[in-house]
């Protein structure tokens, strides 16, 4: 690759731009339309939401579906279930659990991933596969023994039970993402810091990790989403608003005796917003982080 001569293209593919925009719009619609529809429904009265033919924008926009969450007593009679009154609590619980999972996961995975990226040691390949193996066993197989374990720890219906479960879920994949990312961080950085007589922890903290930030963000977002979306373990390990998470409450909407589409839609929107905001905040770093992590170091 010594002499790269910039030869102007003899002819440009004339339709490339058009094709690009057509595809972009098509994908955009595919991604946003389903979600748009539940957002639109969440601002409608029930009658408009199930009208035939549908009205694509709320013709009589209303906030009552959302206000129900703030003032659940008024909504009780309307929907006949607890799901509405539990939604705000479950959002709080989901946020706490997912954030804590992301952080705890990051700490544990950073240590492990560092070892795979910097040290050559016996058993490393087996260990790496063993990590992944723990994720290949379907959750349903381990849910009952896991439940018994948590019960014996006295952790049922607490945040900790969920944080611990989700950490074990996310950890193997996070280690895989991070190890490749760390490998792409130039060794010279650490060597330089060592020359400056920084201790190992100091080196990690002030030199290595800042450079690795995009990878850490990607790993954290991944763990956050894992925790945010999980349903089955949350269902079994929690029972009250002290720890119930949003998927469990959302499932209530699916089975409730008198569910309204619009209230369900509002809850669905609320369930998506926090992680979405998070993903958008870290969007740029997310792609960078995955970039180094997934290709090769």
């Amino acid at each position: 690759m010594t002499t790269v001569v910039q030869v102007p293209l003899r002819y440009r593919v004339p339709f490339k731009k058009i094709a690009l925009y057509v595809l972009a719009v098509a994908f955009g619609l595919y991604l946003v339309l389903p979600f748009y529809w539940i957002v639109a429904m969440s601002f409608m009265h029930e009658a408009d939401a199930i009208a035939v033919p549908p009205s694509w924008v709320p013709v009589h926009p209303t906030l009552e579906n959302y206000l129900g969450f703030v003032n659940p007593d008024a909504a009780q009679e309307l929907v006949g279930g607890r799901a509405v009154s539990e939604t705000p609590y479950s959002l709080r619980n989901s946020l706490v659990v997912a954030t804590a999972t992301a952080l705890l996961n990051l700490v544990l995975a950073t240590f492990a991933a560092y070892s795979f990226s910097r040290l050559k040691f016996r058993g490393s390949q087996v260990l790496l596969l063993l990590y992944l193996l723990t994720r290949m066993v379907p959750g349903i197989a381990i849910i009952i023994p896991f439940y018994l374990l948590m019960r014996s720890f006295g952790l049922l219906d607490t945040y900790l039970a969920l944080i611990l479960s989700y950490t074990t879920f996310a950890l193997p994949i996070t280690i895989w993402i991070l190890k490749d990312f760390f490998r792409s961080v130039p060794r010279e950085l650490e060597e330089a810091a060592r020359v400056d007589r920084c201790g190992w922890f100091r080196t990690m903290w002030s030199v290595f990790l800042p450079v690795a930030a995009p990878g850490l963000v990607a790993a954290a977002v991944f763990a956050f989403m894992t925790a945010w979306n999980e349903f089955m373990f949350a269902l079994f390990l929690t029972s009250t608003t002290a720890a119930k998470t949003i998927p469990v409450v959302a499932a209530n909407f699916a089975t409730d005796f008198n569910t309204q589409f619009t209230v369900m839609a509002a809850a669905g929107v609320l369930a998506v917003v926090p992680p979405l905001v998070l993903a958008l905040l870290f969007q740029r770093k997310l792609v960078q982080g995955m970039a180094a992590g997934s290709v090769k170091g």
């Binding site: 972009a24 994908f27 955009g28 991604l31 946003v32 389903p34 979600f35 529809w37 539940i38 429904m41 989403m225 945010w228 979306n229 999980e230 349903f231 949003i246 998927p247 959302a250 499932a251 909407f253 699916a254 589409f261 369900m264 839609a265 809850a267 669905g268 369930a271 998506v272 917003v273 926090p274 992680p275 979405l276 993903a279 958008l280 969007q283 997310l286 792609v287």
Partner: peptide, 25 residues
């Protein structure tokens, strides 16, 4: 940028909510 944001959207949706959404649709 907008398309990239949209591409992240479905990730934020718990499977149960995803099922409910498509059931309505």
């Amino acid at each position: 940028g907008l398309l990239l944001s949209l591409a992240l959207l479905p990730w934020a949706m718990p499977g149960v909510v995803n099922g409910l959404m498509w059931r309505t649709i």
